[in-house]
């Protein structure tokens, strides 16, 4: 069973990486967006295999669902077919990007070497546990206050975007 899980984990991991590469390499933004969906779904599968079903579900609902729909909506609304390159995006930009990328790879490598990449034991990331914490007295206030935050954003967005009845 553990072997089967490990195999699945590598398969989905490879899928996520491959799709991410496709996303970056692809010139058509719509295809890039679809490749990103594959990455996100594969990541969700990896989370599920690691025993975090709640994060797996969130990954699908929030990222693969809501956010991707938003991306595709904008792409189709603007009718972008090919990548538009901003002027001035030249060699310096690429060098900086490569430098930062190398830094990130080095950082990940050093962490993998220095710290034992052991999974924390007895870690419960089930939906039940998350719900317990969310409705725990300590976080209850924050959880409720977030609703005001969302309402304020909603009212603000509508106030800024609504067509003026007078004009």
């Amino acid at each position: 069973m553990a072997l089967f899980q490990a195999i699945l984990c590598y398969v989905f991991g490879a899928l996520a990486l491959g799709a991410a590469l496709v996303m970056v390499a692809q010139r058509n933004p719509t295809y890039s967006a679809f490749a990103l969906i594959v990455t996100l779904v594969s990541l969700s599968a990896v989370f599920g295999l690691f025993g975090a079903p709640f994060i797996a579900a969130l990954q699908i609902i929030v990222y693969a669902g809501a956010i991707m729909v938003l991306f595709l909506f904008v792409l189709m609304l603007l009718n972008v077919r090919t990548e538009v390159r901003a002027p001035g995006e030249g060699r310096v930009f690429k060098l900086v990007a490569i430098g930062l990328g190398a830094l990130l790879v080095g950082e990940i490598g050093s962490v993998l070497v220095a710290a034992r990449p052991a999974l924390a034991g007895g870690f419960d990331a089930s939906a039940r546990q998350v719900a317990r914490l969310l409705f725990d007295a300590r976080y209850l206030y924050v959880f409720e206050a977030t609703s005001i935050l969302i309402l304020a954003s909603l009212v603000g967005a509508i106030a800024l975007a609504k067509r003026d009845p007078s004009s």
Binding site: L149, A152, L160
Partner: peptide, 8 residues
């Protein structure tokens, strides 16, 4: 909450 409302 404060910031979002004031941005708008």
């Amino acid at each position: 909450i404060m910031s979002v409302a004031v941005y708008a």
